[in-house]
């Protein structure tokens, strides 16, 4: 017997995919600015990066508002309960076809590992990128208010490290989407919003 649950609302899906597109755009243009590749010339890269950054900031403001008005922020409260089971699943169970140890409900969308990872993105990587990016952007006006030991160099390094952390996250995140019952199952959920409920350990 399989029942369908409506896991991701329209806003949540819009937010997720536009954020994904913007972050990839920012990564791509950011690495062009950084000089890692030259598929975009510097000026275009800066223009793209700045426009995408503002869009992303706008999106985040909406998302934060949404999280708090809908109470959805609770999905990111970290928990260590059962985390050992999650780790064992990904390190072993998944290979022998064990059932996923986590039971998704509308009230608990994310398993404990996801909670931790997304919380890390929201509390560490995003603010790091966001704050350093804004300082980078307004460096000309902010320079005078910065403590002595912070130069544009430190800001750029922080921003670049943030970008690399984001890249690492994106790699693992994209890979984990393929660990559903079929490789595209999880992607479809994020597109349609509907998740098929599977029997699994409680």
């Amino acid at each position: 017997m399989s029942k369908r649950i409506y896991l991701f609302t329209r806003f949540e899906r819009f937010w997720h995919w536009s954020q994904a597109a913007l972050i990839l755009t920012l990564l791509f243009s950011g690495l062009a600015i950084h000089g890692t590749h030259s598929l975009l010339d510097f000026q275009t890269a800066v223009e793209v990066h700045e426009i995408a950054a503002w869009l992303l900031i706008g999106l985040w403001i909406f998302a934060i508002f949404w999280h708090f008005t809908t109470g959805q922020w609770k999905h990111y409260i970290p928990t260590l309960r059962n985390i050992d089971r999650m780790v064992r699943y990904y390190a072993y169970g998944i290979f022998i076809g064990a059932n996923h140890p986590y039971h998704i409900t509308v009230e608990r969308k994310h398993n404990p590992l996801q909670r931790l990872a997304y919380l890390g993105v929201k509390l560490l990587i995003n603010p790091l990128i966001w704050i350093s990016g804004l300082i980078y952007l307004f460096w000309g006006s902010l320079k005078g208010f910065m403590p002595e030991f912070i130069g544009l160099q430190q800001v750029a390094v922080a921003h670049t490290l943030g970008a690399f952390l984001m890249l690492a996250f994106v790699i693992v995140h994209v890979y984990l989407t393929t660990t559903g019952h079929t490789p595209l199952e999880k992607i479809k959920v994020m597109i349609t919003g509907w998740e098929k409920e599977h029997e699994s350990a409680k």
Binding site: H34, F42, T160, F164, A168
Partner: peptide, 29 residues
């Protein structure tokens, strides 16, 4: 600090190293 000219080898090392490790992990998994 001139974006596009300047970078720290160690930052890029750590960054791409980390990304590389993730890719390796993903590939192995």
């Amino acid at each position: 600090w001139l974006p596009g000219r300047d970078s720290h080898p160690w930052v890029d090392g750590i960054g791409f190293g980390l990304a590389g490790l993730m890719l390796l992990g993903v590939a192995a998994h």
